Measured scan of single mutants.
Amino acid sequence: TLDDSATICRVCQKPGDLVMCNQCEFCFHLDCHLPALQDVPGEEWSCSLCHV
């Protein structure tokens, strides 16, 4: 889900339109996540760090 609060991106440390991982609660810009996300993920989304 998009989170436009004062939360910062885990990768670039900047605020903005972010998606939050449902497991670790880290936030990412779509372009900062590795691999980059093309679209906003669904409600139950886990980042690539949680899939390691």
Score class of each variant (00 low, 15 high):
32 C>A: 03
47 C>Y: 01
33 H>F: 04
47 C>V: 01
30 L>D: 01
51 H>A: 15
35 P>C: 04
34 L>T: 12
52 V>C: 07
49 L>T: 15
22 N>C: 11
4 D>S: 13
47 C>K: 04
44 E>Q: 12
13 Q>M: 13
19 V>F: 06
22 N>S: 12
46 S>D: 05
24 C>Y: 00
46 S>T: 11
42 G>Q: 12
48 S>K: 09
33 H>L: 10
18 L>P: 01
40 V>H: 05
41 P>M: 06
11 V>H: 02
23 Q>E: 08
41 P>G: 09
22 N>M: 06
30 L>I: 04
10 R>K: 15
47 C>F: 01
5 S>M: 07
51 H>T: 15
13 Q>Y: 11
8 I>F: 14
26 F>V: 06
16 G>C: 00
5 S>A: 04
50 C>P: 13
42 G>C: 08
2 L>K: 12
18 L>R: 01
4 D>V: 15
37 L>R: 11
37 L>K: 04
9 C>A: 01
4 D>C: 15
41 P>N: 10
6 A>F: 04
11 V>N: 10
19 V>D: 13
38 Q>T: 05
50 C>H: 13
22 N>H: 04
2 L>S: 13
42 G>I: 15
46 S>P: 09
51 H>S: 14
36 A>V: 14
15 P>I: 05
48 S>F: 04
36 A>F: 07
9 C>Q: 00
9 C>D: 01
13 Q>V: 03
37 L>H: 08
34 L>S: 15
23 Q>D: 08
29 H>C: 02
1 T>E: 11
3 D>P: 05
19 V>Q: 05
22 N>D: 08
11 V>W: 04
3 D>L: 08
28 F>Y: 11
30 L>R: 12
47 C>N: 05
8 I>S: 14
25 E>Y: 12
5 S>R: 12
11 V>E: 11
39 D>H: 07
26 F>P: 00
2 L>V: 10
35 P>I: 07
43 E>V: 09
24 C>D: 01
18 L>G: 02
19 V>R: 05
17 D>G: 14
37 L>C: 12
9 C>F: 02
15 P>L: 02
4 D>A: 10
4 D>N: 14
46 S>E: 14
38 Q>K: 09
52 V>H: 04
6 A>D: 07
46 S>C: 10
46 S>H: 10
30 L>Q: 04
51 H>N: 03
39 D>V: 13
1 T>A: 15
7 T>C: 04
20 M>H: 01
45 W>V: 08
50 C>F: 06
40 V>T: 07
50 C>T: 05
30 L>M: 07
20 M>G: 07
43 E>K: 09
21 C>G: 01
3 D>V: 03
2 L>H: 02
30 L>V: 12
29 H>K: 01
18 L>C: 06
30 L>P: 10
50 C>W: 03
38 Q>V: 10
50 C>E: 08
40 V>D: 12
20 M>R: 13
15 P>E: 12
31 D>S: 06
43 E>M: 12
17 D>Y: 03
51 H>K: 04
47 C>P: 03
23 Q>M: 05
49 L>F: 15
24 C>N: 00
22 N>I: 06
43 E>D: 14
48 S>N: 10
48 S>R: 14
2 L>T: 15
8 I>T: 13
31 D>G: 12
30 L>Y: 11
43 E>A: 13
51 H>Q: 15
11 V>R: 10
35 P>V: 04
52 V>A: 15
33 H>Y: 07
48 S>H: 13
47 C>H: 02
6 A>C: 00
49 L>H: 15
40 V>W: 11
